[in-house]
Computed example of a mutant assay.
Amino acid sequence: MAQLAKGLKVVTGLQFRADPLITKAKQLVDSGAIGQITSTTATGCFNNYPADTWNAKADYFLNFKGGANEYTISFAHFLDSFRYIVGDFANLHSVVDIQYPTVKLVDFTTGEVTDPARKKTSPDHIFVNGKLESGAVASLSFRKVTKTVDGKGLRWLISGTKGELEITIDGPNFQMDIAKKQLRLVDNSVGVTQDIDFTDAQELAYVKSVPAMGQNTSRLCEKYVAAPTEVANFDDALKLHQLLDKIAAAANYPYKA
């Protein structure tokens, strides 16, 4: 598909990079606000439901081969924005694992347990360490929990020679604009941490009328029209899937997509 799309104006559904939070963070990094990146650390979690429970109507999420699961959606959306802001891995080693090999399937409409021990092949813990093409070092850790101690679904630090950025999001589903978010910056020369306003003053009014789960998709569509180089194309999607495959392979993950 990527080959067939050569020369065409295309977009793929990686809407997290259209989030104003990510757009602003990239602008700050590209402007040199934190200097040369030296390291980046991200800690995230998957807690849509209790760790030992899953929605019976989304049973397919539990299969690694199905292509739609927490690894290829939630983690992948983060990983795309990670590549977008700080670049790709030059080398890496990883641990990809299942700590909850069986889960209870529940029909959330009726409360009925449809399967008390549904086997799962999609991973729920992902740890990646490595060096980026820029020379910076990186550490990513994503875990499965029922509740986080601090309420944060994502805490991402980008450290540089002049300062540091922190991105935090309450709750999972980073690609959807449904949780409280914060962007903070500390400039070494000033030494005071400040909250950064990432509101897009030029955003079209209709976007705010879209249900929260679809707002970043609306922003993605608008960027596709106004700034097509800022959206993910098929080449980006291909490189993302190659990186996901590389992470799983480096961990000798026993299930194949």
Score class of each variant (00 low, 15 high):
Gln3Arg: 12
Gly7Thr: 10
Leu8Gln: 13
Val11Thr: 00
Gly13Ala: 12
Leu14Ile: 08
Leu21Tyr: 06
Leu21Val: 06
Ile22His: 04
Ile22Tyr: 05
Leu28Thr: 05
Leu28Trp: 03
Leu28Asp: 01
Val29Thr: 08
Asp30Ser: 15
Ser31Thr: 08
Ala33Gln: 06
Ile34Met: 00
Gly44Lys: 05
Ala56Trp: 03
Asp59Val: 14
Phe61Lys: 09
Asn63Asp: 15
Phe64His: 08
Gly66Ser: 14
Asn69Gly: 08
Glu70Gly: 10
Tyr71Glu: 00
Phe75Ser: 04
Leu79Tyr: 03
Tyr84Arg: 11
Ile85Val: 15
Val86Glu: 06
Asn91Ile: 04
Val95Met: 04
Gln99Asp: 04
Val103Tyr: 06
Lys104Tyr: 02
Leu105Ser: 04
Val106Trp: 03
Asp107Ile: 05
Arg118Thr: 00
Lys119Leu: 08
Lys120Asn: 03
Lys120Val: 15
Ser122Glu: 06
Asp124His: 02
Asp124Leu: 02
Asn129Thr: 15
Lys131Leu: 07
Thr146Gly: 04
Thr148Cys: 04
Thr148Ile: 08
Val149Thr: 13
Gly151Thr: 06
Arg155Gln: 10
Gly160Glu: 00
Thr161Ala: 02
Glu164Ala: 13
Ile167Asn: 01
Pro172His: 02
Phe174Ala: 01
Met176His: 07
Leu183Met: 09
Leu183Val: 09
Asn188Val: 05
Val190Arg: 10
Val192Asn: 13
Thr193Phe: 01
Gln194Glu: 14
Asp195Leu: 15
Ile196Leu: 12
Asp200His: 00
Ala201Gln: 13
Leu204Ile: 10
Leu204Tyr: 10
Tyr206Gly: 07
Gln215Trp: 02
Cys221Lys: 12
Pro228Thr: 07
Thr229Lys: 13
Val231Leu: 00
Val231Asn: 02
Phe234His: 11
Asp236Ser: 08
Asp236Val: 02
Leu244Ala: 09
Leu244His: 05
Ile247Gly: 03
Ala248His: 05
Ala251Ser: 15
Asn252Leu: 03
Tyr253Gln: 02
Pro254Tyr: 08
Tyr255Gln: 12
